[in-house]
């Protein structure tokens, strides 16, 4: 009760200072927010490319329907596989006419359909990686009526290399931004603590328990963190709207990320404040 009253009173007593603390926290978290927005959109772009990771099993012309059905069932039984589509020679030709109009005449004129029948193996999310496609290709190639199994080995490998680099740099940059934000928040709160050093001194003088001294600062830190996180959210959202309207189409981060950001900002404020007040109490 006392802690809450004191934390609110601190906001009221020094609105400029607490406002500045929140603004500093907000700007620090804004950088993290922008980074989150960029990471999320990069992830979406990579996922869209990843969707196209599939295995195409080309079948010999003399493969019997019963053999094809058997392979289709076996491939569909793999837990990594979402679905297996059979593409007949005629379907392949139709598709080629639509997708490759520049070769339209070639396909029209030809009396013989040169395109093979195939099975297109679509993978479940989370399994679109080089190991799985290689495993499925290997399994399919074991059948005598299979001509070839392809999955665009080279670009899948590149895509995953890119993804690994993306994940690593996102991790490193995320930690770096979070550390910078923590330092800024810590500094802002140290200023707030410094402004109230007389009160802290008196509290110690008359015998207040350390926990009691810390509590209002923890609350104040949490409030500054939450206010900063809300500011960061509004700035990031404004940026998103601006980019969407004037530059290019991007996606807004999921609601859980926003909630997580607000909770993290609040917790960040409280923890940074706890560390700052702990240090201050040790010094006086």
């Amino acid at each position: 009760m006392y802690a809450m009253r004191e934390a609110v009173a601190a906001f009221k007593r020094a609105p400029v200072l607490t406002g500045l603390s929140s603004a500093m926290v907000g700007l620090a978290l804004f950088v993290v927010g922008l980074f989150g927005l960029a990471t999320y959109n990069l992830q979406l772009a990579l996922s869209a490319i990843e969707e196209r990771v599939e295995v195409v099993v080309y079948l010999r012309d003399d493969a019997r329907q019963s053999e094809i059905d058997l392979l289709l069932t076996e491939l569909a039984d793999f837990e990594e596989v979402r679905q297996v589509r059979y593409v007949s020679k005629r379907d392949a030709l139709e598709r080629a006419r639509v997708e490759l109009p520049e070769f339209g005449e070639l396909f029209m004129d030809s009396e013989v359909n040169p395109l093979p029948q195939s099975l297109e193996v679509e993978l479940r999310q989370g399994f679109r990686n080089p190991e799985v496609v290689e495993k499925l290709s290997f399994a399919a190639e074991g059948y005598p009526f299979v001509e070839d199994a392809q999955y665009g080995e080279e670009w899948v490998d590149r895509l995953f290399a890119l993804r690994r680099i993306g994940a690593a740099s996102a991790g490193v940059l995320g930690v770096a931004f979070a550390l910078v934000a923590a330092l800024i928040i810590g500094t802002a709160l140290r200023i707030a603590i410094f402004a109230r050093r007389d009160e802290i001194y008196i509290m110690r003088l008359v015998g207040a328990k350390n926990g009691f001294i810390r509590r209002p600062f923890l609350l104040e830190g949490a409030m500054a963190g939450l206010a900063g996180a809300l500011l960061a959210w509004s700035l990031t959202y404004g940026t998103y709207r601006g980019v969407y309207a004037y530059l290019f189409e991007i996606a807004w981060v999921p609601g859980t990320w926003v909630v997580l950001g607000l909770v993290a900002g609040t917790a960040f404020g409280a923890v940074a404040s706890a560390l700052a007040i702990r240090r201050h109490l040790r010094e006086i």
């Binding site: 007389d198 008196i202 110690r204 003088l205 008359v206 015998g207 207040a208 328990k209």
Partner: peptide, 16 residues
């Protein structure tokens, strides 16, 4: 330490 501080009152030259 708070237990000691509550047993001992302290006043200064500059009031604080």
């Amino acid at each position: 330490l708070w237990k000691v501080r509550r047993r001992v009152g302290f006043v200064f030259q500059d009031f604080r």
